[in-house]
Amino acid sequence: MARLPLEIRDARPDDAGELIALWSLCVAEGLNDETDPLSVGWDVPTEEESRHALAEISRAPSQRLCVALSGPQIVGVMKADLSAATPLHLRSVVVVSELHVHPRHRRRGVAWSLMSIAAEWADQVGSSVVYAWAPAPSRDAHRFLTRIGFGHFATVRAARVRVLQARLAGRTASGRGTGRLIAVRRSLRRTHEEAAAAGATD
């Protein structure tokens, strides 16, 4: 398909309603009966919450939320963050997430244009590498990232807090139980050895 003229700019609070609709459409597209909604990390926010979130991002020098417009319509969005390369480094790297393109505007250069902004920002801030993540069910996103030069670097996993707490509590309780069992066995062994020693001296 032909590439349409695009305008790329930073998102504004008044984009909230349109961005919620775009996000919901792209997330729903990747879901099926076997997909855990957790894997896409999406709960529909209120427009008021999104307005506040967008205002926070616009004030943060280490964050950018860029939108692509075709005419008056937002057809794509990308989140980019500056993050320390590791906890032991002061230098930052650019991390791209939440790259979404409206289904009717794909293969028209929208994602390429948004990623170009990420590459330019990385160059400006001295980031020698750009990281990017995409939801596990989004095969198109992973294929696109591979096509433009991204390799597999890490696996991002998610767990619901209640499930995580329950599993960790179970492991802790199991560990305490095992420790008590070992202590009991050692105590019984010592008692048996002491009794045997006493019988030998009689």
Rank of each mutant, 00 (worst) to 15 (best):
residue 181 L to A: 11
residue 33 D to H: 02
residue 40 V to L: 09
residue 157 R to H: 07
residue 117 I to N: 00
residue 3 R to I: 10
residue 81 D to Y: 10
residue 33 D to Y: 07
residue 158 A to F: 09
residue 81 D to V: 06
residue 194 E to S: 10
residue 43 D to T: 14
residue 198 A to F: 12
residue 108 R to M: 15
residue 34 E to N: 05
residue 137 P to Q: 12
residue 5 P to N: 09
residue 158 A to P: 02
residue 70 S to V: 01
residue 96 V to F: 02
residue 51 R to L: 14
residue 1 M to G: 13
residue 58 S to E: 02
residue 37 P to D: 06
residue 36 D to T: 09
residue 134 A to E: 11
residue 200 A to Y: 08
residue 57 I to W: 07
residue 178 T to R: 13
residue 63 Q to F: 08
residue 14 D to L: 13
residue 178 T to S: 09
residue 166 A to H: 11
residue 39 S to N: 09
residue 199 G to H: 15
residue 199 G to N: 14
residue 37 P to C: 12
residue 37 P to L: 15
residue 107 R to D: 10
residue 128 S to T: 11
residue 49 E to H: 14
residue 129 V to P: 00
residue 65 L to Y: 13
residue 171 R to F: 06
residue 159 A to Q: 05
residue 163 V to H: 06
residue 9 R to M: 10
residue 59 R to E: 13
residue 191 T to I: 14
residue 41 G to Y: 05
residue 73 Q to D: 08
residue 166 A to L: 10
residue 189 R to Y: 09
residue 151 G to I: 15
residue 62 S to G: 09
residue 176 R to L: 14
residue 15 D to G: 11
residue 142 H to D: 03
residue 136 A to Y: 12
residue 61 P to K: 09
residue 150 F to Q: 01
residue 124 Q to M: 14
residue 55 A to P: 00
residue 96 V to P: 00
residue 26 C to Q: 03
residue 184 V to K: 05
residue 132 A to G: 07
residue 165 Q to W: 13
residue 73 Q to E: 11
residue 141 A to F: 01
residue 28 A to R: 08
residue 172 T to Y: 11
residue 184 V to H: 11
residue 97 S to G: 06
residue 107 R to T: 14
residue 148 I to W: 02
residue 138 S to K: 03
residue 4 L to T: 07
residue 34 E to F: 12
residue 102 H to S: 06
residue 71 G to I: 02
residue 23 W to P: 05
residue 111 A to G: 13
residue 107 R to V: 14
residue 135 P to Q: 13
residue 102 H to N: 08
residue 186 R to F: 11
residue 17 G to V: 07
residue 2 A to L: 12
residue 193 E to W: 07
residue 153 F to Q: 06
residue 187 S to K: 10
